[in-house]
């Protein structure tokens, strides 16, 4: 009579992959969510393309801001104001303006950061169009 073979059943212990797959999935989701933050943000500006403005009567409230080399802010070619008063004045002016356009120009030695801060302030105050004006050489 043949001997019966005794099989010792060895339970194979498998690795639980659920956690690894979970981590991979979490990384993918994290990556998808975080991707837009890698990109920088910005302010859209438009530069006037005409060299000579067409003559005509302007009835809209204008907001022209000039930054001078010595750090002064000149509003509408008239008066020097501080940044604090510009913060309060700008929303009032823009509320009355139809085009809601703010034109920012600067003298030669003005830092880029100072101009961007004014653009930022204008945008916060409700400006719809931001224009950078290049001053004509004297």
């Amino acid at each position: 009579m043949r001997k019966k073979r005794i099989h010792h059943e060895v339970k194979k212990e498998g690795l639980i992959l659920t956690s690894i797959v979970d981590i991979a999935l979490a990384l993918v989701i994290g990556f998808i969510v975080a991707l837009p933050f890698f990109f920088e943000t910005g302010i859209f500006v438009s530069q006037p393309s005409v060299t000579k403005a067409a003559p005509g009567r302007e009835t809209d409230v204008k907001v022209n801001i000039l930054l001078t080399n010595d750090g002064n802010i000149v509003l509408n070619d008239e008066r020097i104001i501080s940044k604090e008063s510009l913060t309060t004045l700008l929303p009032k002016l823009l509320a009355r303006s139809v085009s809601k356009r703010v034109i920012v120009s600067s003298e030669e030695k003005v830092r880029y950061d100072d101009v961007v801060q004014i653009l930022d302030l204008a945008k916060q105050s409700g400006a719809a169009n931001l224009c950078l004006l290049r001053q004509r050489k004297k």
Binding site: P36, F39, E40, T41, G42, I43, F44, Y112, D113, V116, Q117, L119, D120, K123, Q124
Partner: peptide, 11 residues
């Protein structure tokens, strides 16, 4: 780059 409060994200 300068820091601002208002900025639009671009993708």
């Amino acid at each position: 780059v300068p820091q601002t409060n208002t900025a639009e994200r671009k993708v």
